[in-house]
Design a protein around this nucleic acid. Sequence first.
DNA 1: GACAGATGTTCTGTCGCTCAGACGATCTGT
DNA 2: ACAGATCGTCTGAGCGACAGAACATCTGTC
Lengths: 176, 176
Amino acid sequence: MGVSVPATSVPPNSLGGDLGWTLGVLFRAYLKAADAVTAELPGGPRGRQILTCAVRDEPRSQSALAQLLGVDRTVMTYLLDDLVDAGLVERRPDPSDRRSRLIVATEHGRAVLDNLDHRLGQVEEHLLGGLDDDERDRLRTLLQHVATSINAADPVSDTCEVVQDIGVTSARKHPY
Amino acid sequence: MGVSVPATSVPPNSLGGDLGWTLGVLFRAYLKAADAVTAELPGGPRGRQILTCAVRDEPRSQSALAQLLGVDRTVMTYLLDDLVDAGLVERRPDPSDRRSRLIVATEHGRAVLDNLDHRLGQVEEHLLGGLDDDERDRLRTLLQHVATSINAADPVSDTCEVVQDIGVTSARKHPY
DNA sequence: GACAGATGTTCTGTCGCTCAGACGATCTGT
DNA sequence: ACAGATCGTCTGAGCGACAGAACATCTGTC
């Protein structure tokens, strides 16, 4: 169900095995769905992730939050401005470092997050409609492992070195 | 290996099970790696996907290509301009429709793609370093299923209806 | 304690990218 | 033959991201 589409008969494409393509398709679809769900939330899907951390984790500084979510620190500033204005989170002075602010959720923020999560969960299930329950769990688990692994090794880049190791062995100076 | 990071001791985060976060982390990491590999290719990672289709699939029109890759048709125009300028693909008149152009790869394009795919393959494996071989295969397969399913049902949106069905049951007019 | 350098947050300016809209050319149906 | 839709292209406007500077604060060394 949900997959059968007699119309337009999508022609076969060679990107099925392409990690970049599959990720892109799924991520764009997710973003569209999440955008719809979080339409009224400042910051959209990213605002929800910030809120999730603020509710469920130990309070983080803005920069820690920014790195975790993969956004620039200057962007985090106005993302939080909007969330604070909406009364969803607070900036608390860090007792151990007066430069940084710890982000914590308000009661209102918790309530909003519960509502969002509920709706987002349904949309996600719809998104993974092509998989049965077992496969969905496996996919989520695998993604969690990969993301955790990448996030742990992240301290930025790390990729560049790999690329260099592999070597830009050909077509070096000619721009193709 | 690769995962062990004694430094900074990443604190636990509640986003591990979050589909959006895991996808985001993986996709950003992929994009960074792919950007590095395709640094000299017009269009970067997207240019490579176009090239892949041009080499391996039946020739497609620009708009079909644009929809498959999830880019705006106006963007596809100058992406192709650059690829054509680089001598990687050609715009051929479609014998059955003089409005559209079919995108096909040149010999040069094929050679470049082979080189790119080889290097990208290595980077991808590094990216999935947190998983063993078996898990990598499973992840790729699951992603392929989901992406194919989504792509088949895609004819744009479809999400909005779901969101409406679920209902914006609360916090309706108050902007949080 | 005094200092140099590093880090957290914010502000400013700039750049690139994306999308909406309009246009001409062409196809399709009536 | 005509109306409406579609393909590719071009233009303009707007948004978002990043670099850099500024200020406050921390950490280490002397």
